[in-house]
Structure formats: structure tokens, C-alpha cells
Design a protein around this nucleic acid. Sequence first.
DNA 1: GCATGCGTGTGGTCAGACCACAGTGTGGTC
DNA 2: GACCACACTGTGGTCTGACCACACGCATGC
Lengths: 239, 239
Amino acid sequence: MNDGPDWRPVKRVRAFEEVVAQIEEQISTGRLRAGDKLPGERALAAALGVSRPSVREAMRVLEAMGVLVANTGSGPEAGAILAGSAGPALTGVLGLHLGLANFAVDDVVETRLLIESWAVEAAARHASEADLDRLRTIVAAMDAPDLSAEQFNEQDTEFHTAIAELSGNALVATFMRALRDTVRRHQQRAVAELGPDTGALRADHHAILAAIEARDPAAAAAAVVAHLRRAYPGVGRLA
Amino acid sequence: MNDGPDWRPVKRVRAFEEVVAQIEEQISTGRLRAGDKLPGERALAAALGVSRPSVREAMRVLEAMGVLVANTGSGPEAGAILAGSAGPALTGVLGLHLGLANFAVDDVVETRLLIESWAVEAAARHASEADLDRLRTIVAAMDAPDLSAEQFNEQDTEFHTAIAELSGNALVATFMRALRDTVRRHQQRAVAELGPDTGALRADHHAILAAIEARDPAAAAAAVVAHLRRAYPGVGRLA
DNA sequence: GCATGCGTGTGGTCAGACCACAGTGTGGTC
DNA sequence: GACCACACTGTGGTCTGACCACACGCATGC
């Protein structure tokens, strides 16, 4: 059963891909760490034997993935510095694919529900007194009478992100923020503003906080579910 | 309480960012959809009033986010085509930030556990007979006696991805695959191969499948937890 | 009718130049 | 001696124009 030579198409490797790969390798082997500064674009191009545009394309890719930030000028702040927040990159990816209909808004909200209800359970178990104080401060701030919709949303993000961070899982916290931002950007583009009554939402927050304070994971999760169901009434799949 | 003029630094907008923004807008407003082809780089540069390198940097960013693929040559396949799988992009982002120590392997495994146990519950509820057949086929394939480690891993990915897809949430399925790939790439770089006995892992798969067939969400979730605990014995946080 | 081969348009790469910006050092001034 | 203004230098950002590799498709020739 010899079918003859079985050619596989050669994989075309573009120059900037090679550059990205080499930088990735330096990162995963630990030779490059957060806070380090990359050589200048010209120096890097010379060292790698490629042109500066190729290096720049690689920079853009790494920048889009939230791995580095590029600053102009001179001094310690200038140049490409390995930074590190995956959040914005994730938000961007999710938002774009939401637009491309690769998944639905319902998917995003549902995923947020599943992650956040887990996070709040963990928070109810592990939260320290200092953690609780942080949540109390946020909840209190949201009760201010003259809050703009913008500020309300800000504090709301703070609250939910804080809970996710209390879970002790940095990845979950990052996902949470990305999912929330994605939905928010999408709905503020399509629909109006903060449909539901903010009073009810604030009451929900109090209930969530109370459940965490009572160290009651099940109640906390239930409160989160109720809250999200109220906040996203259009999403039928929330069960 | 007038502190005088409160200047905010002007946001430097680079040319390629503007290009990305415009393409993003075309996507979110629906004027560009999956499968569409972008104008050529030269034409786009002329239309936007920027140079070709700027357009190319924008392309690289969108490509890194998994939004488009670029092909050389001519004909219908050539050019920048709006594609659409967020998976590889997510895997890349997660892997990089794992290397940068922005979160830990334990975080990733724990997140996978939380997502997958939810997914399998949903699968146990909604799976059709055809879905079950698909799972049965995969499980059967893994019982072949002469499977290489490579092939085993392949089928294992198939199995877990299939479960995630059965949840009916495309985003969850995408996350699942990204998380699994991330852990796998990381551990095969650091440690050896498939530490645990594959026999036990196969038995776990049978148990998971049985629970889904029995329409027993709780049992299915428990089986998944047990399976992951066995597959990642080094992760202490799996509870 | 069919295979060959050139034309053409695509992305990929390069070289070189100029700009804006931010620190830094040097010079002059008081 | 202290202080301020200015030029210098090195960074990323942008542009121009050119050439290459590739793949399709049509015209040519058999």
C-alpha cells in the first residue's frame, strides 16, 4: 500500500513570527521577565538578522497580547518593556469574536455567571476581615445619592472584580473582568444605559456582601445568580 | 476647592491603532463579517491615508487576535480574510502570561476544573443520542492498545472538547480548549510525559461517559473532578 | 482538447530616511 | 556657586519606494 511520496506543504515562516517565537522562548525559559526592557528595535533587528519592520510587526503582536508596552523618548521608561496584564488583550479578543458572531452575548453572560458564582463561593470561604472591609467600602460608595451612571458602573466593576480577586485565583479574576467589560461594551453600543433600576442592583450587592460576611457560600452564589439575572434580563439561558 | 487646570496627558494615537479601530468598527457594526475579504494592503493604505507598514502592523494585531488570516498569491483564497477562531489567540495569551508569572499553573488547572465540571453538568442534561455516540466513539478509540502518547493526548483533547461543546456554550468550549492546551504545552516543556497511568485515565473517561448517559449531572461533575485530580496530581488546590 | 508558460496581483521583506518625543548634559547667565 | 536654556542623543513612529516569492488564470502552442 505505497501511495508514493507523501508531500506535506512546507510551512511558510514569516520573519516576524520567528522574532515573536524567539522572544516567547526567552520568556518561557525565564531569561526575560516582567519589568525587563528589550533592546531597541534597531539593535534587535541587527541581532536577529531581519529588518526593522519585521521586528516592529513582532512588537505589535506581543503588544496586542498584553506582553509588552512601547514608550517613546529616552530614559528608563523608554523602549519596549515587558509588562503584564492579560486583561485588555482578552477583552479585545472576546469583543472582536463577539462581533464576528463566533459566540453569542448569552454565552458570555452565562460564562460570567458560572465563573462568578464559583468565585463568590471561594470568597465566602477565604475572605479575611481586610477583604470584607474592601467590599464594604465599595458597597457604601455605591449608595452615594448623586452617582452618575458612569461612576456607578465604575464601582460596580470594582465590586465584582474584588470578589473575583478574593477567590485567590488570578486567572479567574482576569477572566471575570474581561467578560464583564466585553458585555458592557457590547450592550452600551447596542442598547441604552443601565436598563434595570439601580436601587435593586444595589440591594443585590448588599445581599451578596452579607452572604460573604456570613461565610455562607451557597447563599452567596444564590445571591450572585439572582443579581445577574436581574442585571441581564434579556438573557434567557440564565438558569 | 479649585486645584487649577487639571490637564490630562493627551493620548498618543498611533496610525496602526487607528486602522485597527476602524476595522474593529466595521466588524461590530456588521459591515464586515466572517468570510469577508479585506482590500489589499496597498488599497487599504491609500483609502485610510496611511502607509503600507502601518496597515501591515494593524494586520498583525488582528491576526494575533485570531480575527483574520493572510494568504499570499492571487485568487479567491489570497488576501486578508476575516476568519474566526479565538482559540489559538487565547492559548497564546495565556501561555505568555503564564511564563511572565502573571498567574500560576494551579490557577489554570483550577479554572479548567470549574469550567469543565459546569460543562459536564450541562452536557448530562442536554446531550442528544447523537452527542452520546460521538463521545462513545472517542472513548472507544482511546481503548486501542497500540496508541502512542501523542495519539492518546489527541483523543483526550477530543473528548474534553466534545464535552465542552455539548454544554451548548461556544465560549466555554473555546476557553476549555485554550486552558487545556496551555497546561499541556507548559507541562510538556517542564516535566516529562503523561505521568499518570493511562489505564486509570481511560477508566475515568468511561465513568464520565456513563454519568452523562445516565443523565446524572452531579455524578458527571464528580467524575470530572476525580479525573482531573488524578491527571494533575501536583496541583494542591484541587478540592 | 490539453498542457505549458507567462502575466499580474497578492502578501512578505528590505533599506534608508525623516519626525516627534523625552531625558541628559553642557553652556551661559545671574 | 546656583540656576536656567538649549542642543545633543537615542528611543519609537512613520513614510517612501523598491524587490521578492507565490499562486492563480488566461493565452499560447502543441
